[in-house]
Amino acid sequence: MEAFLISTGIVALAEIGDKTQLLAFVLAAKFRRPLPIVLGILVATLANHACAGALGAWITSMVSPEVMRWVLGVSFIGMAAWTLIPDKLDDEDTKLARFGVFGTTIVAFFLAEMGDKTQIATVALAAQYKSVFAVVAGTTLGMMIANVPAVILGDRIANKIPVRVVHGIAAAIFAVLGIATLLGAGERLGF
């Protein structure tokens, strides 16, 4: 349950102001059809984060626990710093309208998530908790918590969210996880 809850919270916070949330705003404004956009986000996120979770599990099987502890600790601290850097949306992420609303959302979100901080976090969390299902379910829920309101409420909430504060909280959580991992937290639990 811890893997699910931490994954949900971290991704929900990290996603505020992220380029995929900006993409959700753009798609909502362009197509004005929330249901296929929300379903497209869900499908793309499940596919992307399932691959990331599998990668995290594979990495765990390839390195020793001591090396994994250092890799994860440094990765979480790196994620803390990366979370503080604002994202920008590329024009190419929104030029896929020939696939329809649902298809455009799937392709755009899947591609926008490649190498994104939430995908990297999913790899690290899956490696940390050794529970791919709980992590993927949590990171997917976190993406939905951040992006569904962006699709449904759009411009009405875009300017009311204190993005810097939310990013600061997410960065602090990543930093605490990184430091705790480096200090050996969870060793007795098998992390």
Rank of each mutant, 00 (worst) to 15 (best):
Q119D: 00
D116L: 13
L13A: 14
V11S: 09
T122C: 03
P162I: 11
H167A: 11
Q21R: 13
I179E: 07
D87P: 07
P86M: 02
F191N: 15
V165L: 13
L84S: 03
I106Q: 00
A170S: 07
F4C: 05
A172V: 14
G40K: 12
P34R: 12
G78N: 13
V176T: 12
T140M: 10
A97C: 11
P149N: 09
R156N: 09
L42K: 11
V101P: 05
I179D: 08
A171K: 09
W70P: 03
A180K: 03
V166F: 14
L183Y: 07
V163H: 06
A127Q: 02
A29H: 13
G53C: 02
A108V: 07
E66D: 11
A28V: 04
M143P: 01
E66A: 14
D91K: 09
R33D: 01
M68N: 13
A29N: 15
A108W: 13
T83L: 08
L84P: 01
A171V: 04
M68V: 12
A146Q: 04
E92N: 12
G103L: 11
A172L: 12
L125E: 00
G138N: 04
V71N: 09
V74I: 14
S131L: 05
G78T: 15
I77K: 11
A24K: 03
M143D: 08
I173R: 05
I6L: 02
F76G: 02
I37D: 02
D18M: 10
L55Y: 09
L55C: 02
Q21N: 02
Y129H: 09
T139P: 07
E187D: 10
T122H: 14
L35H: 06
L22A: 09
K130Q: 01
D116N: 11
V74Y: 05
E92H: 09
A57T: 01
K95L: 09
A29E: 06
V63D: 07
G115V: 11
L189V: 13
V74W: 13
I145P: 12
L13E: 07
L35Y: 12
L177C: 10
G184I: 08
E15Q: 12
A3P: 10
L125M: 11
V176I: 08
H49P: 03
A12Y: 08
W58D: 11
L46I: 06
K95Q: 13
F109M: 07
L141I: 04
I77P: 05
V132H: 06
S7W: 01
T140H: 02
D155Y: 13
I157W: 02
G73C: 04
E15Y: 08
V148A: 01
K160Q: 00
A12L: 03
F133M: 15
A126F: 10
S7A: 12
F25R: 05
I106C: 03
A28L: 07
G103Q: 11
G53E: 00
L111C: 10
L153G: 13
G73N: 05
L177E: 08
V43I: 15
D18Y: 06
L189Y: 00
I145W: 03
V165Q: 05
S131W: 07
T122L: 01
Y129V: 00
D18E: 06
F76D: 06
G186H: 10
A57C: 04
I77A: 03
F4Q: 11
F191H: 10
K88A: 15
V101I: 11
T94Y: 15
V67I: 04
A185H: 07
F31P: 08
